[in-house]
Lab assay of single mutants.
Amino acid sequence: DHDVVPEDKFQETLHLKEKEGCPQAFHALLSWLLTQDSTAILDFWRVLFKDYNLERYGRLQPILDSFPKDVDLSQPRKGRKPPAVPKALVPPPRLPTKRKASEEARAAAPAALTPRGTASPGSQLKAKPPKKPESSAEQQRLPLGNGIQTMSASVQRAVAMSSGDVPGARGAVEGILIQQVFESGGSKKCIQVGGEFYTPSKFEDSGSGKNKARSSSGPKPLVRAKGAQGAAPGGGEARLGQQGSVPAPLALPSDPQLHQKNEDECAVCRDGGELICCDGCPRAFHLACLSPPLREIPSGTWRCSSCLQATVQEVQPRAEEPRPQEPPVETPLPPGLRSAGEEVRGPPGEPLAGMDTTLVYKHLPAPPSAAPLPGLDSSALHPLLCVGPEGQQNLAPGARCGVCGDGTDVLRCTHCAAAFHWRCHFPAGTSRPGTGLRCRSCSGDVTPAPVEGVLAPSPARLAPGPAKDDTASHEPALHRDDLESLLSEHTFDGILQWAIQSMARPAAPFPS
């Protein structure tokens, strides 16, 4: 592969990997390779389809078979030569091979799209000592099968071997295949498990690692696999990028399955594409389908809103127990993405979901129960707010008499603000006073009005108090039968009158 990737590009890729991570280095090298001529790309395919690569990765054979028959990708048995050289000459001794072996032994695996480039050397060096003999053996194999790289107009793939297949390693990572398949204008990513390549439709969760975000852009890794992070704060999961590491605690105790298979379609829109997988259930989501939507993949363990709600429900009964003089119970939860139609709101002032922060849900004790107040519409209280300059209440639009249902020339009671006709409430011909108009209920007259088809109010509507207090003497005590009587009149003013009279009014101040 030294004929494909020059030394300066190799060093530039290593520097970019240390600065921005393996995914960015892979993407940059792939983009550079696509700008080369067809001879360089053909050399790339020839390096990929060597015999030892085909033996190690069985899924490469179907890719090789898909090439046109007129494309010669065979390799000479006596060494490598550029395709432009007409004579089959043995190339001179390859010093770059020693360079590659020494550099890969030092860096474990470079971040390139060629056999030198995919593992994360920093994480491997940190986690190597417990498994040094086995990992050293794996390093000797890295130059042979560490990076199976493929690129063409139909298929483009980048393979990364790992030393996680050490025997006896619980939940060992089998390997990473960062794979971009450009077929019919689409893009897919796969993962390699035990020599087999699994596409998103049959993606397997190998051991402790999972394909957290099938994305090839942005600074985030394709698999949430930063070796420096180790395990999740809650004892979460091992990262795919942690090559040759000792077994780590796999999943939280509440995880239903340690080796679950995540779905390959969004649980909201039932469509495929780039998904984020939940650590607590097999569901996966688009970032845009979450509520609120996320802009980037959160670091650490992530769970959907259903799993978060289940966790909150487990903690909430203990938080609601009476604990005198104790601060509110704080339950730190990872930043969760909410699927459509589901929402768990945190306290005000918290950062938005999706940031690399930890939301704190506070379970406050329930407030003391209070008697429910009568629910009145805002339009129902409008007549009470229509007060004239002299303190006389004006008529609201649409006000109707509670007896006849007519809204023409209605009066407004100064005591309960109900609309009424003087002739309907006082049919006996009582003279109307000039000021202080009161309806039949507030004036103490319980004589029913002779209106055909309208039920008369119940005599129990009024329960006047002592006459010594004029204001308190007109406080009506309405009961269920009074409400039914008012409802039978089918008037809004009657219902409003009952609601206003049912509310307690402050006692009249004593004259000074």
Rank of each mutant, 00 (worst) to 15 (best):
Q243G: 14
A248K: 15
P249L: 14
A251V: 11
D255E: 05
P256M: 14
L258W: 06
Q260E: 14
N262Y: 11
D264I: 04
C266S: 06
R270P: 11
I276Q: 08
G280Q: 10
R283P: 12
L290Q: 14
P292K: 15
P293T: 09
E296N: 14
I297Y: 05
P298N: 13
S299W: 14
W302M: 14
S305W: 08
S305F: 09
S305N: 14
S306I: 08
C307R: 14
L308Q: 11
E314C: 12
E314Q: 09
Q316M: 08
Q316H: 09
P317D: 11
E320T: 13
P322A: 10
R323N: 10
P324C: 13
P328G: 13
T331P: 06
L333Y: 07
P334G: 02
P334C: 15
P335R: 10
S339N: 13
P348D: 06
G349H: 13
L352G: 10
H363S: 05
L364G: 07
L364S: 09
A366L: 00
P368T: 06
A370C: 09
A370I: 15
P374A: 09
L381K: 05
L384V: 06
V387R: 10
E390H: 13
Q393K: 12
N394Y: 15
P397Q: 10
P397L: 12
R400V: 05
C401I: 02
C401G: 02
V403C: 14
G405E: 09
L411S: 11
C413R: 02
A417E: 13
A418I: 06
A419H: 07
W422N: 14
R423S: 06
R423E: 13
C424Q: 05
C424V: 02
F426H: 10
P427L: 07
T430F: 02
C439E: 03
R440Q: 09
R440G: 08
C442S: 01
S443V: 08
G444K: 11
V446Q: 13
A449S: 14
S458M: 14
A463P: 08
G465W: 15
P466Y: 12
D470G: 08
L478K: 00
D482K: 00
L486T: 03
S488M: 07
E489D: 09
H490N: 13
T491P: 05
Q497S: 05
A499C: 00
I500G: 03
M503N: 04
R505N: 01
P506S: 08
A508S: 06
F510A: 03
